[in-house]
Design a protein around this nucleic acid. Structure first.
Length: 482
RNA sequence: CGAGACGUGGCGCAGCCUGGUAGCGCACACCCUUGGGGUGGGUGGGGUCGCUGGUUCAAAUCCAGUCGUCUCGACCA
């Protein structure tokens, strides 16, 4: 009689316990711990290495598109933040201030940066003199602080790690090209590294970044049907250039304001990955960012383990040489079954089992975290098969997430229809929008859903506003969001 | 800041209604057993029940206050 449990890999979207599931998963997988500061978390090694791998993959893409990294101060003088009107209004409520140091009150209080447009704007004004200095393409990896009313590990913490790109250009056309190019970098990264399908589009005016002319985003769907904004890219026009006097002498010898952009993704991506791919057994990590891609588990009673361990160690070396992030758990005080559960909970994409029976057959067994499927593989083929399987597992993750998103995407013609739909399910709702803020906020009041973005490639096109019934200027995706 | 719930070994919880010597599971330490899905059994260590006050012969339990945490809203990546 087999004691094997059925391999359950679903989380039901309406689940009341979704946030409990989420907190449980990240705690058990030891990704983080709560810090003794409101809304702050500690990244434990498995959590931090996820971020390191995200950084590495993104950084490569930034470099490929001509960007360079730099670093700017954590503290921002108050008068910097006051220079751009919308920016101040947007960020003031959530900025913490340093008002004294060394026991003395500061002459001017210092903001702990919520974002660095102002500091970087100030510096760019000094660095940019001529069109020959443009475009200026710089990225910063750093921490920022936003004192939000409510926090949730990874998805919204008081302090978070992120990357913020800041670029300056000769004209609108070039700046807009950059804005779209970086959004596309994010889309590609989300879908091909995090294996997380997203909807790319433009934010409505009420949802755009404080100080931006236009904001674009990629939106992902969590397993409870709610949306997470996974990345943003802003065309800032000359708003910050005017505020900080970022000017250059153009080819006609005329002093001209730069057009600037900014774009960023944060450690909330980790939260999104967990909520997109996780299942009833815990984490499921995309192979390309998994700190450990393969866990080798030698099997068999201690006395029969010598040959098994020898072979397992050979495989370990071989896989390392093949560039695979692999570890082995050869502890003999826990049973194999315990280890199976442990590493499934931790989301390791592939488990490699090897025991006496395998040795007789000259093979080992590879097990996929996504499907639970067990595949015997000849020992001399492991180094080729594992990388291929990592690819395959990643693709399956994307397809599964895409299927889920499609199944929870619908379109509605009226507000009543949306309300009715939300009675039975959650998800992305395509709907027409006349362009008025009143209609947009009405949707929020009555359904809790906010406009996520105006997709570049909508699944459907709607002709009437779902609230007022007037001609629709856009087709918008609505969803409840984190 | 509005509305609800909860604070009991490291973690998860029961006990409270009806006051009477603080319990369970997991984890931890040791012994045996087992080893291809959390193996089974035994022994042991660890908590002044969030805090303060009140009622009582007696309070985890009843009463009042207070602090903290979480969930749902408003704010947000």
């Amino acid at each position: 009689m087999s004691k094997e449990k059925q391999f359950v890999t679903e989380i039901t979207p309406q689940s009341e316990d979704f946030s409990r599931w989420y907190l449980d998963v990240i705690r058990k997988a030891e990704l983080m711990d709560y810090a003794p500061v409101r809304g702050c978390i500690v990244f434990r090694p498995d959590g931090y290495e996820l971020w390191e791998n995200i950084q590495r993959e993104l950084d490569r893409r930034f470099k490929e598109t001509g960007h360079r990294n730099a670093y700017f101060p954590l503290f921002i003088p108050e008068h910097f933040l006051l220079k751009e009107k919308e920016h101040v209004e947007g960020f003031n409520p959530e900025v913490p201030w340093v008002t004294e140091a060394g026991g003395e009150k500061l002459e001017e209080r210092l903001a702990i940066r919520p974002t660095s447009e102002t500091m970087i704007g100030h510096m760019y004004a000094r660095w940019i003199k001529s069109y020959r200095d443009l475009p200026l393409l710089i990225n910063q990896w750093c921490n920022v602080v936003r004192w939000e009313k409510r926090t949730l590990p990874f998805l919204r913490t008081s302090e978070f790690l992120w990357q913020e790109g800041h670029t300056a250009h000769e004209d609108e056309e070039d700046a807009r090209r950059e804005t779209m190019r970086m959004l596309e970098v994010y889309r590609d990264f989300a879908e091909n590294v995090l294996m997380m399908p997203v909807i790319a589009g433009q934010k409505t005016p009420s949802e755009k970044f404080a100080g931006a002319v236009d904001t674009y985003s990629i939106e992902a769907m969590m397993k409870d049907g709610r949306a997470v904004q996974a990345g943003t890219s802003h065309y800032l026009g000359t708003n910050f250039a005017v505020a900080f006097d970022i000017k250059y002498l153009n080819r006609e010898n005329v002093m001209t304001y730069c057009h600037t952009t900014s774009w960023g993704v944060s450690t909330r991506l980790i939260g999104a990955v967990i909520m997109v791919h996780g299942d009833d057994r815990g984490l499921v990590l995309p192979p390309k960012i998994a700190p450990t891609q393969v866990m080798i588990i030698p099997i068999g009673p201690p006395k029969a383990r010598e040959p098994v361990l020898a072979k397992a160690n050979e495989l370990l070396d071989e896989l390392r040489r093949a560039g695979v992030r692999v570890r082995m758990d050869d502890r003999d005080d826990v049973s194999p079954g315990w280890k199976f559960n442990e590493y499934e909970m931790r989301g390791i994409p592939i488990r490699l089992e090897i025991g006496p029976r395998d040795l007789e057959n000259g093979q080992c067994v590879l097990v996929s975290r996504v499907t639970g499927e067990k595949t015997p593989v000849p020992l001399d083929r492991v180094a080729e098969e594992v990388p291929a399987m990592l690819e395959r597992v990643g693709r399956e993750m994307f397809e599964k997430a895409k299927r889920f998103m499609d199944e929870h995407t619908f379109d509605v013609d009226t507000l009543d229809e949306l309300k009715a739909k939300y009675e039975e399910t959650r998800g992305f709702a395509y709907a027409g929008w006349c362009g008025s803020e009143a209609c947009e906020s009405r949707v929020k009041e009555e359904t809790g859903a906010t406009s996520r973005n105006i997709p570049f490639e909508p699944a459907v096109t709607k002709s009437r506003c779902l609230v007022c019934g007037e001609a629709a200027r856009h087709t918008v995706v609505y969803a409840r969001a984190y």
